[in-house]
Each structure stands twice: as C-alpha cells, then as structure tokens.
Amino acid sequence: MDIIISGLLLGGTYALMAMGLNLQYGVARIMNLANGEMLVLGALAAFTFYVSVQLSPLLTMFIVAPAAFLLNWLIYRFLLRPLVRRAKNQGQLEVDSILATFGMSFALVGVMVSIQGGYFTYSFLADPFSILGTTVALNRLIAFILAVIIGLALYLWLHHSRPGMAVRAVAVSSDASKLVGINVSRVSALAFALGGAITAVGGTLISTFITLDASIGVIFTMKALIIVIMGGVGDIRGAIIAAAILGLVETAVASLIDPGLTLAAAYLIFLLVLLFRPQGLFGRRAT
C-alpha cells in the first residue's frame, strides 16, 4: 500500500514533465533533449528563492512559469526555427534538433553548475501526513495535487479553446493545418514554450521532495521520453497512465530491491514497450 500511494504521487509529477515534452515533440516536432535541464532549472529557481529569501516554492511557481515560457519561446524562435527552415525532411530535422538540444542541454548544465555546484537541498513542508493509513510527506501530496490541477487545466485548454484546438490540429498534421489557415510556425512556438513552462513547473514541484543537482537533468529527460513513448506521442491520457506505471515500478524497485536500480527498471519498461507496443499503450499500429 505504501508503495502504491507513493508511487502514484511520484507518477503525478512525472506525468506533468512528460506532458511538457509531449507538447514539444507532438506539436513542434522537436525532440527536446534539454527538457530535463528545463526541469532542473525550475528546481534551481525554487531552491535559490527558498534559501535566499524564504520564498515558498508554491509562489516561485508563478515566477518560473512565465520565465520558462519566455525562455523556451526564445529558444524555439531563434535556435530551433532556423533548423526547421533548413531541414529538407523530417529525418534531417530530427538529427539536427537532437544535436542542437544536446548542445543546449550541456550549456544549461554548465551554467547551472556555476550557479550551484552542490545539491539543491532545502526542506519545505516535510511534515508527515496520513492518507488511507499510509504516512506520506505533505510536500509530495501537494505536488501531486498541483500536478493534477495543471494537467487538468491543460486538458481543458486543449479541448475547449480555439488556440488549444489549433495546437491539436498541428499535432495531427502540420500540412493540413496550414491549409485551413493555422499559422503553424506560431502554434509550434506556442506549444514549445508552453511545454517548457510546464516542465519547469514540474521541476519546481519535484524539488520540494526530491534532492536534485545541476547535472541530473538527463535522467529526467530519459524518464519523460520513456513515458511519452509508452503513452503514445500526443496522447495525454496515455502519458498519465504511463507516468503512473513508471512511478509505481520505480517506487517498488527502490523500496523492495535497491534505489540504485530505478533507472534499470525504467529501461526494462522501455524495452518491453519497444518490443511489444512501440505505438504506445493506446496507440493504433502506425500505417
């Protein structure tokens, strides 16, 4: 029971960061390997503000979200759009964007290490809280609830607003979207920026209960990618379930076998998905 509760709570924040990556890959068609660094940046902001001016991470979130939105918009506009323009086909864009986001990922790690070389340790709402007979830390629960709220808001926005609909249209087919008068380039930039903002907020939330450091981003990138692939690209419902599965399996492996093996467990899941459901949990087999 302990494992199930804390696994699901962890899965909530995983789902959030995977949603961010999903928007970036599913809509803007950029496989953003600097996604994990955006998450760590959100965590670093929470840590810095908490340690220096005692600002609650729950408030920092409101600084992080617009800042990350702007940063990611700038990245898309000035670094990635030239690659989109230059690419002769999807394959070349994929290779270029992978290499470029590697570069960004390393550059961001470098910058963050020079700001804070050690662990981002701080204690926020680490009080015990009892739920269904299991004691969990309050910060985990709050992070989970906020993740659910943000995820729900994103879902409603995508499905019940005009810009949300444009984003979904571009995700289905960027060529057809152009034909019905959607400014694909702008929508892609919007989706990329929004995805980055969501991931960064996820980082702020995660930092309340997991100790991060400047170079750990790549592990989160891995996890987000595994979730996106398991859930199916562009599938929010799939991403949520996949995140829950990953959270549960990791928690189970960490508490039953060894915390050092969580990445290996994630890989095992990844391998099973690649072998048996490469189109995602709910995806239809590609044509």
Binding site: G103, F106, A107
Partner: peptide, 9 residues
C-alpha cells in the same frame, strides 16, 4: 560542460 554544449551548437 558549458564549452562542450557550445561546441555542439
């Protein structure tokens, strides 16, 4: 690390 990133870019 920073320079490695810049080299990639």
């Amino acid at each position: 690390t920073l320079l490695l990133g810049l080299a990639f870019l």
